[in-house]
Design a protein around this nucleic acid. Structure first.
Length: 425
RNA sequence: GGAGAGAUGGCAGAGCGGUCGAAUGCGGCGGUCUUGAAAACCGUUGGCUGUUAAAGGCCCGGGGGUUCGAAUCCCUCUCUCUCCGCCA
């Protein structure tokens, strides 16, 4: 959520930023500024009235203490009018605050200056591409065929037990999941991230804090009896660890990594690109999260990108990094790098990670602040997170890209000690 | 699930309806002393809003109410603790 004061002071830059993000209703910016002015005026008048009431009450108290009952009773008569007026202003203020808030939450974050303009995924900027794209034999199969052939993931069984998009991992498939999770966690821990094992259900405050509510309510599974939401990513509970905290600059950066299952309804995304493990409702992921001072957050972002790169290199997968254009970025991000892995049999790039700097967009919602070493000023931290990594598409790419002439799949060396086997099939 | 107790500043812990943003202790910060440190002593030490700065306003788990005036009274919700029951 952007801050009203910032918008008022940087009106033109805000409008330009929103346009870059392909946000249409830039009129809202001026509305917010106008409401803010009105709001401050009402607040000022209200405070003045409250101040008067306070002093009357105080005076009455003193008169009573001096035994001057009559004077005190006389003063009491002045209160009702003030009270009525202030009640009115109070209502106005609340209405204005609500109105302003409702506008504010509809504004996406502003893009960083390095974000390319553009509206569609085709306009994302390819920052780099690493590894060679394997040329597959004509017998190469897409992963959904391999899953079935090897018996390592049963999608139909998941449908029977739960519904479409809830894969059942079996035998080597299950062990590969566990191996990847451990590998990713070990990499993160070695890079200085503290491991967190968070709740998989969160309350509304938490879901609001990272921006899932109100914008993406329909994308989360909702346990209505207790009003909890199943997490769509560990980012949600982990970033909320520091909700309402005031950290010390010396504590930053704070780095967390967390393994968790992720639950996504993916409402509305039926039909294409959903075969096999390409898009599922439940999957596993290791997430990395950082809290950093504003001056260093982009440096930190680059560090997170390098971390993900290292993992992909160790997995020997060809990948490319995209800097998302304004129109393709998420609502709350200021700069996002997407990682895509080339899936040889599908002959397409699969998104396996998304690493973003949210600047103060999330921290403003969550009131995550820090106190400076020097100036002792309290200000909002920058939050960042990224997948390192999400499993299903990694599994898909590993299977498809490492097919041998004999029809088996060779796992990359780095995983052998984790899986306890080297070949599937 | 049943019964009871409670929720106050970073922590602990006071707080007859009136001058309480809140005693006191600990912790933190600054200083005196010391070669340095500890101890002792002195001072200081919440957040939000607002302003050039102030003044002012709001915050004692959340919400609502009574009152000229609420941390203190009432209602309600949430959470925590103790005992019982159940249980991986």
């Amino acid at each position: 959520m952007l801050q009203a004061a910032y918008i008022a002071q940087n009106r033109d830059a805000v409008v330009a930023g929103l346009q870059k993000k392909n946000f249409k209703d830039t009129d809202k910016v001026d509305q917010i500024i106008a409401i803010d002015e009105k709001r401050r005026k009402v607040k000022f008048d209200l405070d003045e009235l409250l101040s008067q009431q306070n002093s009357i009450a105080k005076e009455i108290g003193q008169l009573f203490a001096q035994g001057k009952r009559d004077e005190a009773d006389a003063l009491k008569g002045k209160a009702p009018l003030l009270k009525e007026q202030s009640r009115e202003l109070q209502e106005q203020l609340e209405a204005l605050e609500l109105e302003q808030y409702e506008l504010l939450v509809t504004l996406p974050n502003l893009p960083h200056s390095s974000v390319p303009s553009g509206k569609t995924p085709e306009e994302n900027e390819v920052v780099k591409q690493v590894g060679t794209i394997p040329t597959m034999a004509s017998t190469a199969k897409p992963h959904w065929e391999l899953l079935e052939q090897f018996g390592i993931v049963d999608l139909a069984l998941g449908t029977k037990i739960t519904g479409a998009g809830f894969p059942v991992y079996l035998g080597k498939g299950a062990r590969l999941q566990r191996a990847l999770v451990n590998f990713f966690l070990d990499e993160a821990i070695a890079a200085g991230y503290k491991e967190v094992n968070p709740p998989l259900m969160v309350n509304t405050d938490t879901a609001f804090g990272t921006g899932q509510l109100p914008d993406k309510e329909g994308q989360m599974y909702h346990a209505t009896e207790d009003n909890y939401y199943l997490i769509p990513t560990a980012e949600v509970p982990v970033t909320n660890i520091h909700r309402d905290d005031i950290l010390a600059e010396g504590d930053l950066p704070i780095r967390y990594c967390a393994y968790s299952p992720c639950f996504r309804r993916e409402a509305g995304s039926y039909g294409k690109d959903v075969r096999g493990l390409n898009r599922v409702h439940q999957f596993e992921k290791v997430e990395i999260v950082q809290f950093q001072i504003p001056e260093k957050s982009y440096e930190t972002l680059e560090g997170m990108v390098s971390h993900v790169e290292r993992i992909l290199q160790k997995l020997e997968l060809p990948y490319r990094i995209l800097r998302l254009c304004g129109g393709d970025m998420s609502f709350s991000s200021a700069l996002t790098y997407d990682f895509e892995v080339y899936s040889a049999a599908q002959q397409r790039w699969l998104e396996v990670s998304s690493v973003s700097n949210f600047e103060t967009f999330q921290s403003n919602r969550m009131k995550i602040r820090y106190k400076g070493n020097e100036d002792k000023k309290t200000q909002l931290v920058h939050t960042l997170n990224g997948s390192a990594l999400a499993l299903p598409r990694i599994v898909a790419a590993l299977l498809e890209n490492n097919q041998t002439a004999e029809g088996t799949v060779l796992l990359p060396k780095v995983l052998h000690s984790y899986t306890g086997f080297e070949v599937i099939g």
